[in-house]
Amino acid sequence: MDDGQTIGTRRDWFLTGMKGIFSLPAIILMLSFVGFCAFTAQAGIPVEQVVFMTGMVWALPAKVILVSSILGGANLVTAFIAVTLSSIRLMPMVAALVPEIRTEKTPTWLLLFLSHFVAITAWVFAMERVQSVPRERRIAFFAGFGITLVLANMLLVGVVYQFVAEFPPIVAGCLFFLTPVYFLASIWSSARHPVIYVALVIGLIAGPLFYWLAPEFDILLAGVGGGTLAWLAERNWRRRREARA
C-alpha cells in the first residue's frame, strides 16, 4: 500500500472522477437530457422506457434515432441498422481512449464493461484530463466519471419526466434545441483531424438533401455517401498539398 501513499488510492481517483459531474460538459449534457426527456414525453414514450433507454443506449444521437424509428413504426432490423450506423463513431473513439487509460495489468473484461460509458461527453472529458492522472489510476478516474454521468442522467430523466410536459413552451423549445447545437459545437471543437470538419459540413447538407430524395434511408445515405465524399475531398486536397510541398 506504499504505492497508494504517493499517487492516491483508487477510491480517491474514483471520487475525483465523480466530481466531474459538476464540469461544464457534464452540465450541458444534463440540460440536453432534460430536452431529450421533453421530446420523449411529448411523443408519449413511457417513463420506464426512457430511463431504461438512458442507461442502456448511452449515446444521445443513437437514442434520438432509436426514438424516431420507434415513432415512425420501423421494424427491429431497420431500427438496428439506423442506430448502429450512427454509432460507428464509437469504435474509433473507444479505440483512441483505451491506450490512454489502460496499463499492462488492466483486464480486457473491465475495458469491455467500461467502454459502455464512452460517449461524446465522457470521451472529450477523459481525453482532456487523463494526462494529469497517474496511469495506474486512470481506469478508476474514468470509471468514477463515466458511471456517475450515466446514473445521474437516469435519475434526472426519471425525476423531470413528469414536469417537462408542463414546461413553458419557450423552455421546452430551447432545451430541445440544445441537443443539435451542443453536438455541433462539441464535435467541431474536439475534432483532431481535418476530415471531421469537411464531413460535418457535407453531412449537414446531405442530411436534408437525402431526406428530400429518399426519406426512408436519408441518414444512412447521407452518412455513407456524404462521409465518403468528404473523405475523398479531404484526401484529394491533402495529396495535392503534399505534392506541392
Binding site: 434520438v64 463513431r89 423549445g173 430541445f176 441518414i219 455513407v224
Partner: peptide, 28 residues
C-alpha cells in the same frame, strides 16, 4: 481506413443534427 470511418461517422451525426434543426418535433 480509419479516416474514412471518421468521415462516415461524422457525416451520419451531422445528418441527424440537420434533421433536428430543420424538422424538429414538439414545440419547435
Amino acid at each position: 481506413a480509419l479516416n474514412w470511418v471518421r468521415a462516415v461517422a461524422t457525416a451520419l451525426v451531422a445528418a441527424v443534427i440537420a434533421k433536428l434543426i430543420l424538422y424538429p418535433t414538439g414545440v419547435l
